[in-house]
Design a binder for these strands. Sequence first.
DNA 1: ATTTTTAATATGAAAATTCATATGAAAATT
DNA 2: AATTTTCATATGAATTTTCATATTAAAAAT
Lengths: 170, 170
Amino acid sequence: MTKDTKTQPSGHEEAPLRFLDQYLPYWLSQASYWISSEFHREVARTGLTFAEWRVLACLYGSSGETISTLCRLALIKQSTLSKLVKRLEVGNLTLRQSTEGDRRQTLVSLTTEGQVRIAGLVSKAQAHQREILRPFGEENSRALINTLQELVREHERSGLFDHDSVRPRR
Amino acid sequence: MTKDTKTQPSGHEEAPLRFLDQYLPYWLSQASYWISSEFHREVARTGLTFAEWRVLACLYGSSGETISTLCRLALIKQSTLSKLVKRLEVGNLTLRQSTEGDRRQTLVSLTTEGQVRIAGLVSKAQAHQREILRPFGEENSRALINTLQELVREHERSGLFDHDSVRPRR
DNA sequence: ATTTTTAATATGAAAATTCATATGAAAATT
DNA sequence: AATTTTCATATGAATTTTCATATTAAAAAT
């Protein structure tokens, strides 16, 4: 933060070059955070929380998703999501049905009101993305998204979703 | 424009190309999430939470950071961070002093125990990153990090940190 | 066909986060 | 030099998230 725009360790400078400055996960979360933050304001204007927006966005254009699929898409833990969906349902934005095939599953989908409510935001989200990517040009933008997709494909599998196997402290 | 790289459909056929599939913030959060998830397990093994790891990593190699700087670095809200730091302090991992210059500020730094505790994880984090980036090669890896840094530089400013100006619902 | 194991979701109690605001200190204004 | 405004951090109450586990159903094993 204190140093100029240089990114290359270029040799033996004085600049302490923190561990973080070259740490990919750090920059991924920073980029993710700041980009989302901007849109966060747009979302808040509609009276939705950001997590709610995410879930609704995942349902947009879908005829219904199970709770566990939504967990992966929206990166929300199952127990959290169950409660969030309940709130959405109370607000009449989503609908809950069980599937025919597997009656353990819950299929969540948008109500008409939910669709209306979210459609405008989706357009704004797309416009926002065009705005963000404009300085990078078509080519680089595609490259960025592709790289991210590759990263995810590579690692999605290895990281089991809920960190259930991980023992927390105490 | 060939999309041989097309992503996993969520379960349905005819791949209707969901909004999400081309949405940069979605892929940023997915990439950030899965990459971090892997390391999450490593962190949990040491008895630290992920947020604690982040804060400690930010302090690593630093002689002390203010609460508000840590907020930006670790992407944690101020009130949350104040409490988290208190917990770290109780666990004797960090130290709290006030600065000479500005007595409003709190300078947080690692205790010796904290340094020891975090040093191993930092090495592992770096190894993990090399692992992640290996398939992409030097060139692409640098490009990715550079792009992310540019994104952040571009947007960090516009998104005020705490979403204080944003009115939540109800 | 039972029994056992695994899977999907829900839920209560505990923990962490968030909002709103308080406190104390520096900066700016008068 | 008071006074007002802004800034950095802390904190209580309310909300949300998490962990642990319950519940119900499918799948696998016996």
